Amino acid sequence: MEHRHLGRSGLKVSEITYGNWLTHGSQVENDAAVACVHAALDAGISTFDTADVYANTVAESVLGSALKGQRRESLEILTKVFGPIGPKGHNDTGLSRKHVLEACEGSLRRLGTDHIDLYQAHRYDYATPLEETMQAFADLVRSGKVGYVGVSEWTADQLRAGHALAQQLGFQLVSNQPQYSMLWRVIEAEVVPASRELGVSQVVWSPIAQGVLTGKYTPGGKPPEGSRATDTKGGADMIQRFMRDDVLARVQRLRPVASDLGLSMAQLAVAWVLHEENVASAIIGASRPEQVHDNAGAAGKKIPADALARIDEVLGDVVERDPARTLESSPKQREV
Rank of each mutant, 00 (worst) to 15 (best):
N295G: 05
R8C: 07
L22S: 07
Y217E: 01
L130I: 13
L248I: 00
L140N: 14
L41F: 02
G112N: 10
E15S: 13
Q240D: 14
Q158W: 11
M238R: 15
L183S: 08
H24V: 02
L63V: 01
D245W: 14
L198S: 05
E15W: 04
V28L: 10
L169P: 10
L11D: 04
E188I: 08
Y148E: 08
R4G: 04
D42W: 03
E190D: 15
A271H: 07
A296K: 07
D260K: 06
A66L: 02
V273G: 01
L263N: 02
E73W: 04
L254Y: 07
H275Q: 14
A307Q: 08
L22N: 09
V192L: 14
A282K: 09
S74A: 11
T50I: 00
I303P: 00
N20L: 01
D246L: 03
A282V: 03
Q120S: 07
D92Y: 07
A280H: 13
A166R: 14
E290A: 08
P84S: 11
Q179F: 06
L169Q: 13
G144N: 11
A266L: 00
V149T: 10
S201E: 05
E290V: 03
Y217V: 00
L213P: 00
P207S: 03
R72N: 05
H38G: 00
R253Q: 15
Y18C: 00
E277T: 12
R310F: 05
V28P: 01
S195M: 13
L261F: 01
R288V: 01
Q240E: 13
E328T: 11
V292T: 08
S175K: 13
L118I: 15
S330D: 14
Q252F: 03
A236K: 15
T113M: 04
G262W: 05
D306N: 12
D246I: 03
V37R: 09
E105D: 15
R97N: 04
L315R: 12
S259P: 01
A136L: 07
S26Y: 06
G94F: 03
E188H: 05
S143A: 12
M182K: 12
M238L: 13
S195A: 11
H163M: 04
P219N: 03
K68S: 03
G64I: 01
A35K: 14
A299E: 10
L118R: 11
T17G: 01
G25T: 08
V100K: 13
